[in-house]
């Protein structure tokens, strides 16, 4: 799962949002790292709906403009959880390696 996709799913975990809302939330959650363009977002939304990870929640008309709200499906939540788990294992593996390096000297000194 690519990072923008992950943050789109994450943005929708709490509540359904429309396109602009998703972009802003993804920006916020990623601390500004994931800055989606409208093209990237709608391309991803179509794909995610198609894959069953998201679905259209409702449509609203504001000032004559139609807004479509998206929500995450149970399958989407499951997949996001799996991805989070995968990333956690990557972090743990990295910490084991990186964390061991400084300890090598101290282990040698104490034994």
């Amino acid at each position: 799962m690519r990072e923008p996709t992950y943050f789109i799913l994450l943005a929708l975990h709490a509540e359904p949002l429309h396109g602009y809302g998703i972009i802003k939330k993804a920006d916020l959650l990623s601390s500004g790292r994931v800055r989606l363009t409208a093209g990237t977002l709608y391309g991803a939304l179509d794909r995610l709906v198609d894959d069953g990870l998201l679905e259209v929640d409702r449509e609203e008309t504001v000032n004559g403009r139609r807004r479509r709200y998206y929500r995450i499906t149970e399958y989407g939540r499951h997949e996001t959880g799996l991805e989070a788990q995968r990333m956690r294992s990557v972090v743990e593996a990295s910490e084991r390696v990186i964390g061991r390096l400084p300890n090598l000297g101290s282990t040698g000194a104490t034994s």
């Binding site: 396109g19 602009y20 972009i23 409208a38 709608y42 403009r65 139609r66 807004r67 479509r68």
Partner: peptide, 13 residues
């Protein structure tokens, strides 16, 4: 179907 919404989002951004 989506054109107006897409343009609106792009404009807002």
């Amino acid at each position: 179907e989506h054109g107006a919404e897409l343009v609106d989002t792009a404009n807002a951004l």
